[in-house]
Amino acid sequence: MRLKCPANFRIIRLPCTGKIDVIHILRAFEKGADGVYVVGCMEGDCHFKTGNFRARKRVAQAAAILDKIGVGGDRVKMYNLSSGEGPLFAQYSIEMDEKIRALGPSPIKVALQAKKEAA
């Protein structure tokens, strides 16, 4: 399958989305990411039973924190798909890319760049 997909995101592979923690999401933003999305298995199909449910909760926690500090919780999102759904993965990537472009750059990235320029 040669699927069209935005090239502006970095994939971080995890053994299971249950491995992700709030801090991982926050660190990405601290380092200048404009958005983070977590792609887990279909709900109910987790090899480790509840990994993707845990991930969903942690994504929600990260979103709540990002809202409170003015970065914006809508820059994070949880998606679910099965391993055979390549086209859907590409579609989610495009959807996320469009959404983040509409939101504009993360205020953290803007501030970090301003700091760099001043230095």
């Binding site: 801090i23 926050l26 933003f29 500090i69 003015g70 970065v71 501030a111 970090l112």
Partner: peptide, 10 residues
């Protein structure tokens, strides 16, 4: 700490 750092950077 991460959240506070981001808040003040912003």
């Amino acid at each position: 700490a991460s959240a506070l750092r981001m808040h003040f950077i912003k």
